[in-house]
Design a protein around this nucleic acid. Structure first.
Lengths: 330, 330
DNA sequence: CTGAAAGCGCTTACAG
DNA sequence: CTGAAAGCGCTTACAG
């Protein structure tokens, strides 16, 4: 264990602990040769500053918290990576907490986290705004993938891309579309549904809505039967996981994408590319979402004025969409 | 910010700070009615113990570090979740670090982490043992998915399941098998290759080995051509991601699983189930791996004697394996 | 540029 | 069961 402290080094070198401390925390305040002596000695002794002591003295932990609703949902790993890397560049570590898809647990988890970090990134939270706001009171916080009154947010707006996707479908001769809705408590799910609904209204295209669903792969599979009964041949799923489920469930019924039906996902997570055929979807700038979250959090922490950030998804056409089958065409 | 300390509460209640401290850290030492008063007051004031101060006083941070090579590889999210949950049950938080598939960076990351945690879980590390051992010197550490001399480990042995998978293939009439090897620096990849190689030797079955590969989806895709040229109809991929890549790459060449060729993955990550058809693979007890790691770490930290843990994968037959095509049968 | 000293907010023997 | 006091290892005005 680290018995070595700034005092050991100071004693060894016949200087004061203050100087040793400065050599680590504000090196420019220490004469170059002294600084080097200190570093050499520190190296020799295997010294590492004690984080807790530093944290107690400065009031900053050098740690931020990241809350995700479900790390096993493929949307989050790339987000976690982006956040972690951006944080690392600022020399802050990240405490990860997985809410286990349990929105009700979020406020408690947030409160726990809040006690040990300098700031919080809350990704796609499911809990009610009021509970969340109360839980984050006093901690610098930025929200990802949702807007909460009074908190800076970085969101991905998929409205345009979703409209484009829907146009892509009708352009291929699909007359009737289906929308598989995501979880009722998901902000993104609400936004996406609204975007598609408005588009259908404006275009006068028939749209059947299914859900809300928890948005697991199995939900997509299970929706297959109703889907074929509905007669819709163009399907917009809440996310890629559901889309993959739909493709799988449909295949079991002998209905194949893109030959018989076209399926569009949303987010463009890993499994969208690993499917065969690959999934047509809306690509989210996940990396940017993460980096921007850290950027904003940095601004909040340093007291700068912050503006929420709005990024956009873009349509990526791949293999699960194509011309509507003859019998359904106009 | 948390201006409230044990002193505020003590003053408010006319008792000593020691008592307030005890009420939180060792409640059984405080008389019930006093304890309740303290808790009530703490609640009213919104008090939360300062982690840094506690950490400095006790020498324990209440945080462990978790290093993964690549959080975007679908094997790790479930592992991270398991570790985080098991840790949470012991009231310790987890600092997540992603090495970004860069084995060379691991020792530095480990050293950084080591400075701020009570213990370390290192999952599937890629760096050389010597460098790793030096980096973890002085920190309680447990390794997952690899053995390193002198460090407690929890591993998943897939030897038996892989042999079973190979038998499954020849049982379906596949005469010639191919093995797609994983990364050269991956311990698991080495073990898996060895298991299959030995099996082929013993059974006298023709085996063509390809790789090593970085084991990305694209590596699997790219291997498709060589694979068909090899004439092998039974394919054992290092992991599910590569297996999915192979299925995709082969499909582009008009070769389909399971009709023309059988493909087996390893690990049973999410995308193994979301593929259509679903992937035959070796299911790893990922959740157990994570929980056991925390269990062992707990033992190491409390100075108990620890024994490394060996779990086993089991073959899960799904849709990508079946009878060899006629023309290839004996 | 450097040192002495106080302070960060807890925990924990030690006495009572 | 409770209190007074020292100590954990840093940082940072304040003087020089």
């Amino acid at each position: 264990m680290s018995r070595v402290t700034i005092y050991s080094i100071a004693r060894e070198l016949g200087i004061s602990a203050s100087t040793v401390s400065r050599a680590f925390s504000r090196p420019e305040l220490v004469r170059a040769d002294v600084r080097e002596q200190i570093m050499t000695e520190a190296d020799r002794l295997g010294y590492t500053p004690n984080r807790a002591a530093r944290g107690l003295a400065t009031g900053r932990a050098g740690i931020i918290g990241l809350l995700v609703p479900d790390i096993t949902n493929p949307f989050f790993p790339p987000l976690v990576r982006a956040v972690e890397q951006a944080a690392g560049e600022r020399d802050v570590a990240v405490l990860l907490v997985d809410a286990g898809s349990n929105g009700a647990a979020e406020p408690r988890l947030v409160r726990q986290l809040a006690a040990q970090v300098d700031g919080l990134v809350i990704a796609s939270p499911r809990a009610p705004s009021a509970a969340l706001k109360e839980a984050v009171a006093g901690v610098r916080t930025v929200v990802v993938n949702r807007t909460i009154q009074g908190l800076p947010a970085v969101i991905c707006d998929n409205t345009g891309a979703l409209r484009e996707a829907a146009d892509h479908l009708v352009g291929h001769g699909h007359k009737k579309l289906a929308l598989l809705r995501g979880p009722a408590t998901s902000w993104a799910a609400g936004r996406r549904a609204q975007a598609v609904r408005r588009w259908a209204d404006e275009r006068g295209v028939e749209l059947v809505e299914l859900g809300p669903f928890e948005a697991q792969f199995e939900d997509g599979q299970a929706a297959a039967r109703v889907l074929v009964e509905s007669g819709a041949t163009g399907i917009l799923a809440f996310d890629d996981l559901m889309a993959a489920g739909v493709v799988s469930g449909l295949a079991e019924l002998g209905v194949h994408a893109p030959a018989d039906v076209s399926v569009v996902g949303c987010d463009d997570v890993l499994l969208a590319r690993t499917m065969t055929p690959a999934l047509t979807t809306v690509t989210a700038p996940i990396d940017q979402l993460g980096r921007q979250a850290i950027e904003l959090l940095g601004q909040v922490v340093s007291g700068e004025p912050v503006r929420s950030v709005r990024l956009e998804g873009v349509l990526t056409v791949r293999g699960t969409t194509g011309p509507a089958p003859r019998r359904h065409r106009g």
